[in-house]
Design a protein around this nucleic acid. Structure first.
Lengths: 246, 246
DNA sequence: CGGTCTGTTGAACGCGCTCAAGACTGGTGG
DNA sequence: CCACCAGTCTTGAGCGCGTTCAACAGACCG
């Protein structure tokens, strides 16, 4: 079974291993990594956030970017009437908030108790002007973000509720390096899942119950879910399950 | 009234004016621009596409990128069962297909008769290693794409059908530099609009009819729409119209 | 142990979808 | 030039998925 303490996101962290290499880096805020690969506080300032605490707001000046050490972070867009869309979810190891422009284009909030490593944007911008590999990593990170966000657009535009929840679970499992069976800590409530998947909170509950009754998952407690049949989850996620008979 | 011949996309074209500056550029494939700002064929190879013709497929090796000279291009993702989500729409002046990675992460297809200017990726990658301003423009373009795609996620996840169609029209009008009243050529059919907005084709028809009956637009023919009340369109787009009484 | 927040389940509604028919458009060949 | 035809658009009718509203159960925390 996967340990949550050592689990961390695929996305930009691995890319940034080179970027933030302490030995070669001239940047003072270099990230130190423990042998196990677990993200650990580096020379950047460690910040602690409580549940639902705002990290930065859409429109704020972008002077810092962050790496998740523990907890979860939601990147979201709000509308005046309270409707909310989570555009990305950050898990330990993920990096967010780096803008080449001047201000943040989304709001970032902590989900649960969250620890972040924060870095000033300027040094890395300067570094990227000196070093080719740093530039490549920044570009790769941006492209990776763009690609994953586009995949999520297909989910929001063209998937059924059941498919969305299955995709969410399968994708999260992969990010946590769970291949077959395994337990994972969602680290967030139904409200956040719903706003990420573009569904009502109650629909998320119902679909999770449905997947449980189908024997694909087990709901250990509100936050922790055991994946029992990853293949079936992925099958539903890809729409191979009873859609359009014939 | 806006002339379609001189209209071109806001997004990356203006950013790339500096990038592809012919005088300073060492790249042979420099874009020449007419005084009016209209995108014109440069030293890049001119390619002509017929309606629905594939430009490149998801997974294809990414050796070229393109600028739209005339026509429209859809960037889309397909699912096995035929469901389709258009992740971005390109209008004249827009640039697409530049990947810092190795392969394209989406499919590109021409909508209607379309002319593209094509450029090899390598020269610009080399150029970006020499010139700071080129790097900045590439980064800015990527960030712009990321930001606009995230805005579209809010539409797909949290907007009503009426709001989506109003947002579509208002956004397109702005891209065509229409401020108050004006006529614009959508350049695409209802099917494409539907797949861009995550709706059924019939729903797009109904909502367009609704906006017409409300006096906000006029449908001149299948492709051309006159915007009569831009403010009202934007008001609906932002959800300020009768949602949640009280 | 009480209070509040979160999750679950049921019932009913309604938005947007599906299915279907008809109108319109644009392109083609006689 | 017009007749034809295929493709696209429009509108109607009915349905169903996911939402809303509501009640209750469970979990967490002081």
């Amino acid at each position: 079974m996967q340990s949550f303490e050592t689990a961390y996101g695929t996305s930009p962290a691995s890319l940034f291993q080179a970027l933030l290499r302490p030995d070669k880096s001239k940047m003072s805020a270099a990230v130190q990594r423990t042998p196990g690969g677990k993200p650990a506080p580096g020379a950047g300032a460690l910040l602690r956030f409580r549940n639902n605490q705002m990290i930065f707001n859409e429109g704020d000046e972008a002077n810092y970017f962050y790496m998740v050490v523990s907890g979860r972070v939601r990147l979201c867009k709000m509308r005046y009437d309270g409707r909310r869309q989570i555009v990305d979810l950050m898990i330990p190891g993920d990096i967010f908030g780096f803008e080449y422009g001047t201000e943040h284009t989304f709001t970032a909030e902590a989900i649960g108790k969250t620890v972040l490593d924060s870095y000033s944007c300027r040094p890395i911008e300067r570094l990227s002007e000196e070093r080719l590999d740093v530039r490549r990593d920044l570009m790769t990170m941006l492209h990776h973000n763009l690609s994953s966000v586009r995949n999520h657009m297909v989910l929001l535009g063209r998937e059924t509720a059941r498919e969305r929840v299955a995709t969410f679970l399968a994708t999260l499992a992969i990010r946590f390096r769970i291949t077959g069976r395994g337990v994972m800590d969602l680290g967030m409530g139904r409200r956040d899942i719903a706003d990420y998947l573009g569904l009502a909170l109650e629909t998320v509950c119902r679909e999770l119950s449905g997947l449980r009754h189908a024997g694909l998952i087990e709901i250990l407690d509100h936050r922790r879910i055991a994946v029992l049949d990853m293949a079936a989850l992925q099958s539903i996620s890809e729409g191979l399950q009873q859609r359009r008979p014939g």
